[in-house]
């Protein structure tokens, strides 16, 4: 399973970003290979549709889950259609804490 998360900085100890489309850095974690990577979002400063374009961009990484503080209405619709589950942390957890990694 592949988890993606909107982050504040490119480390495992980053908190999850409260925004999705306007987020610059995403973390990707593969539960099978245990690989962690960080990617830059080229669409973070679009005037409109940042969420939709970011969501499409993440699809290339074959994600199964996406973690962020909030998703816009069109983004929610997009992820529902692509069968990607959305996760919203309630407690300011970091990427490491949410995935329960050491």
């Amino acid at each position: 399973m592949i988890f993606a998360a909107a982050l504040i900085n490119n480390t495992l100890d980053s908190q999850i970003n409260n925004h999705f489309g306007r987020c610059r850095i995403f973390g990707i974690y593969n539960t099978e290979t245990k690989a962690v990577s960080f990617i830059e979002n080229p669409f973070y400063d679009l005037d409109e549709e940042a969420g939709c374009k970011t969501a499409e961009f993440l699809l290339q990484h074959k994600i199964n889950f996406i973690i962020a503080g909030r998703f816009g209405i069109k983004t929610v619709s997009f992820f529902q259609q692509e069968n990607i589950q959305m996760i919203i942390p309630e407690n300011n957890q970091t990427f490491r804490e949410i995935l329960k990694l050491k």
Binding site: I73, V76, S77, Q80, Q85, I88, P89, E90, N91, I98
Partner: peptide, 19 residues
């Protein structure tokens, strides 16, 4: 708003959507 089914896991303190 989108008609999504949202659930809550009290152990992990998260809200999530289901397929």
């Amino acid at each position: 708003n989108i008609h999504t089914l949202w659930y809550k896991c009290p152990h992990c303190s998260i809200k999530f959507s289901i397929l």
